Simulated assay, not measured.
Amino acid sequence: MAIIRGRQMDLDMPTLAKQFKTSKPVIWATLKTPHRSKATGRPSTTSPGVDRIIFRIRKKNPRQTSTDINSELKDLFGV
Rank of each mutant, 00 (worst) to 15 (best):
S44T: 10
K24C: 11
N61S: 09
D75F: 04
S23P: 00
H35E: 12
G49F: 11
I27A: 14
S66P: 00
M1A: 10
T22S: 07
W28Q: 14
R58G: 06
R58F: 05
Q8A: 15
G6E: 12
R36E: 12
Q8N: 13
S47A: 13
D12V: 03
S66C: 06
D12M: 07
A39W: 00
K60Q: 10
V26I: 14
S44Q: 07
I54V: 15
D75W: 01
A17S: 14
E72G: 01
R7N: 11
I4P: 02
E72D: 10
T65S: 15
L16S: 06
P34A: 02
F55H: 06
R36I: 06
M1S: 11
D10K: 13
I53D: 04
H35D: 11
V50M: 04
M1N: 08
K21L: 09
A29C: 00
R42S: 13
F55W: 04
D10G: 10
P14C: 09
P34F: 02
S44A: 14
G78M: 01
K60N: 04
L31T: 06
S66G: 09
P25Y: 04
D68K: 13
V79D: 00
N70M: 06
L11C: 01
S23Y: 01
G49W: 07
I3Q: 09
K38C: 05
K38W: 05
I54Q: 02
P34S: 07
P43Y: 06
R7C: 09
A39M: 01
I53A: 09
Q8S: 12
I69S: 06
T67V: 00
P14K: 12
S71C: 08
K24F: 03
Q19R: 14
R5F: 04
T33C: 11
T45I: 12
D51N: 13
M9L: 13
T65G: 10
I54K: 07
L16Q: 07
H35S: 08
I54E: 01
A2P: 04
F55L: 06
D51R: 12
N61H: 09
Q8R: 15
G49P: 02
S44M: 06
R52M: 06
Q64T: 12
K74A: 14
D51G: 10
R58D: 04
S37H: 08
I54F: 01
D12Q: 13
T33N: 13
P25V: 06
K74R: 15
D10S: 12
G41V: 12
P14L: 08
I57C: 02
L11N: 05
T46P: 02
Q19S: 09
T67S: 01
M9A: 14
M1C: 05
D10T: 05
F77G: 02
T45H: 09
K60S: 05
T45F: 08
D51C: 05
R58P: 03
L73T: 10
V79Q: 03
M1W: 02
T67R: 01
I3H: 03
H35G: 04
D68W: 08
T67Y: 00
K32D: 04
S44F: 03
G6K: 12
K24N: 11
D10M: 07
V26A: 15
G78S: 00
T45G: 07
T45P: 02
T45K: 15
D10Y: 11
N70F: 05
T22F: 03
D68L: 10
S47L: 14
K38P: 03
